[in-house]
């Protein structure tokens, strides 16, 4: 088992109280596994990513453990985490493309980053990996602003994985890319796993069709908790959680003429995480909700590797 997250609770402190962005998340990730992570905006996906690498000042580790390759990650200890960042866990954040330092040429930026991690630049290896994702070498002598979105994204991918981390978290790295670049970037990520640059990966996205193509397993979060986790095919073709079913039904496809026909979203909005109601968090929006749902549904394994938190699954 590469990653084990158990009962993880991470809150944001605000003037009005704690926002319980992760409220008891448990899941596992195997060696070589790519886990697609989807869920409504605000459900805690980016918070999960940040928790595994660097908590910002307002974040508080309230409970639970994270174990990577048999070692506990000291996620609450910013200093101690330094030994793990880039080397064991690496994150490509949402909007990474706009986060590249605009005043440095790429080559210099890579050098500085590696030095700050106490590693030397292996130029040959860097170039080999750039080849692999289809980046011309002269990119190294350009400023970030001179690269297209897709090029920047691939560059960030190469940089974040140069030290062969065990776990890579990619947060919406393809969301801003056009379809052809998206395909290239997604395939490059698969290549990173197949070449052993990273052992396992969490791929956060809103594109269920895309994650179906690259992930082995898909996990659906809802309001700070796990709703469903299953092998990619099962999750898309035979979802068991009512939220997942509605989500999959709301996908528009090309090749279909919609004209005046409208797909349906999911009525209502997720509960506030400041003071979430007891019981199932999806209750207020769930078409199947019944009396038992006033109690929190446990996560049950309904088929091998298929976990669902719903009384009626």
């Amino acid at each position: 088992m590469s990653l084990q997250v158990s009962e993880l609770r991470v809150h944001y402190r605000t003037l009005r109280g704690d926002v319980r962005a992760l409220d008891g998340m448990s899941f596992e990730l195997g060696d070589g596994e790519i886990l697609g992570l989807v869920g409504e905006s605000g459900c805690g996906k980016s918070t999960l990513g940040k928790s595994l690498i660097r908590m910002d000042g307002r974040m508080r580790h309230v409970g639970g453990r994270v174990v990577l390759d048999g070692r506990e990650l000291p996620i609450a200890d910013d200093r101690a985490m330094n030994d793990f960042r880039f080397k064991e866990v690496s994150l490509i954040p949402q909007y990474a493309m706009s986060a590249l330092n605009p005043t440095r040429k790429i080559r210099r930026m890579v050098g500085e980053l590696l030095r700050s991690r106490g590693a030397a630049l292996d130029a040959a290896e860097l170039e080999r990996r750039m080849d692999q994702v289809g980046l011309p070498r002269e990119v190294l002598d350009r400023y970030p602003i001179e690269l297209s979105g897709g090029m920047k994204q691939r560059m960030v991918m190469v940089i974040s994985t140069l030290l062969d981390p065990s776990l890579l978290i990619a947060d919406e790295v393809t969301s801003a890319l056009d379809v052809s670049t998206q395909k290239a970037v997604a395939r490059a990520l698969l290549g990173f796993r197949d070449s052993g640059y990273v052992k396992s990966m969490i791929f956060v996205t809103h594109d269920i069709a895309l994650t179906h193509h690259i992930a082995d397993t898909i996990m659906v979060m809802y309001a700070g908790r796990l709703a469903e986790k299953a092998p990619a095919d099962a999750l898309v073709k035979a979802p068991r959680h009512p939220y997942t079913r509605l989500l999959v039904d709301s996908l528009p496809e090309v090749g279909v003429r919609y004209a005046e026909r409208r797909l349906e979203g999911i009525a209502g909005s997720p509960p506030s995480l400041l003071d979430p109601p007891p019981g199932c968090r999806f209750r207020a929006r769930c078409p199947l909700a019944g009396d038992e749902c006033a109690e929190e549904p446990p996560v049950a394994e309904v088929a091998p590797g298929h976990h669902v938190a719903c009384w009626k699954a």
Binding site: H206, I208, S250, G265
Partner: peptide, 20 residues
């Protein structure tokens, strides 16, 4: 300009339906 690229599938449909 790319306003729905960061939205989840169900919110995206809501926003698209709203535009419709």
């Amino acid at each position: 300009d790319e306003i729905t690229s960061m939205l989840d599938a169900s919110t995206r449909i809501d926003v698209l339906n709203l535009l419709a």
